Amino acid sequence: MSTTQSERLRGLLEPLVAAKDLDLEEIEVSRAGRRGVLRITVDSDDGVELDTCAELSRTISEKLDESDVMGDGEYVLEVSSPGADRPLTEHRHYVRATGRLAKLTLTGGDEVIARILAVDADGLDLEVPGVKGRKPTARRVGFAEIAKARVELEFNRKDKKEEEA
């Protein structure tokens, strides 16, 4: 995607996404045979409902039809929310992941799997699970130390069951 097209798409889409109280996370334009594919990823602090994606897709489609930003060729529009195991790249992603288990790859190459307890401007307060019956330990990691981070899926998280009981 050319920088000009990227900038034009972002300028066109950001107000539409913001009007739904969502964050525009990613815009990706690719080819699938003769058709173009426009993938738009949106998110919010409360997640994104399927109906909201459908409404936003209709709104975006109408706006794109009025403009020439996608050119004259056919294209497919996909509007979705990020997956459960999405990479954490922005400060707001870490805030949204508070309470969740995350896998962090540090700049030195070490990997840490820990629960995010708190997020501030400088980094994360983590709880590293204990191994073989040991108690969890606290750890502080600065954003400058993080090379990659991703939320880990949890299928049997204990505190979720306690909330339901």
Score class of each variant (00 low, 15 high):
67 S>W: 11
17 V>K: 00
48 V>T: 00
146 I>N: 07
117 L>T: 09
13 L>N: 00
76 V>A: 14
32 A>G: 05
99 G>W: 05
120 D>H: 02
154 E>W: 11
114 A>G: 06
117 L>K: 11
41 T>P: 02
63 K>Q: 14
28 E>M: 04
67 S>C: 14
65 D>L: 08
160 K>S: 07
64 L>H: 06
1 M>L: 08
85 D>N: 14
28 E>N: 11
108 G>V: 05
93 H>P: 03
62 E>K: 14
132 K>S: 15
71 G>F: 05
114 A>P: 04
11 G>D: 11
126 L>Y: 02
105 T>P: 03
49 E>F: 00
124 L>D: 01
140 R>M: 11
85 D>I: 08
17 V>W: 00
23 D>K: 00
29 V>Q: 01
158 K>Y: 13
5 Q>L: 04
78 E>G: 08
143 F>D: 00
63 K>C: 14
89 T>P: 02
156 N>V: 05
94 Y>I: 10
56 L>A: 04
96 R>Y: 10
163 E>I: 05
130 G>K: 08
112 V>S: 04
6 S>W: 03
154 E>Y: 12
138 A>F: 04
19 A>Q: 09
142 G>L: 13
115 R>D: 05
119 V>I: 03
61 S>T: 10
80 S>G: 12
63 K>W: 04
127 E>G: 01
27 I>T: 08
7 E>T: 04
154 E>H: 11
128 V>K: 07
140 R>G: 10
147 A>R: 08
72 D>A: 14
35 R>D: 15
109 G>F: 07
4 T>M: 04
90 E>T: 05
157 R>I: 06
155 F>W: 15
6 S>L: 08
90 E>I: 03
1 M>H: 10
91 H>A: 12
33 G>D: 14
100 R>F: 12
64 L>P: 04
145 E>C: 08
109 G>R: 01
46 D>R: 12
45 D>K: 06
116 I>H: 02
140 R>K: 12
45 D>E: 13
122 D>Q: 13
108 G>H: 13
47 G>M: 02
68 D>Q: 15
34 R>M: 12
62 E>C: 03
37 V>E: 00
100 R>I: 11
99 G>M: 06
28 E>Q: 09
130 G>S: 09
104 L>K: 00
106 L>R: 09
64 L>W: 05
48 V>L: 03
72 D>S: 14
53 C>H: 04
143 F>L: 11
87 P>V: 06
48 V>E: 00
64 L>K: 03
164 E>M: 12
148 K>E: 15
34 R>K: 15
66 E>K: 12
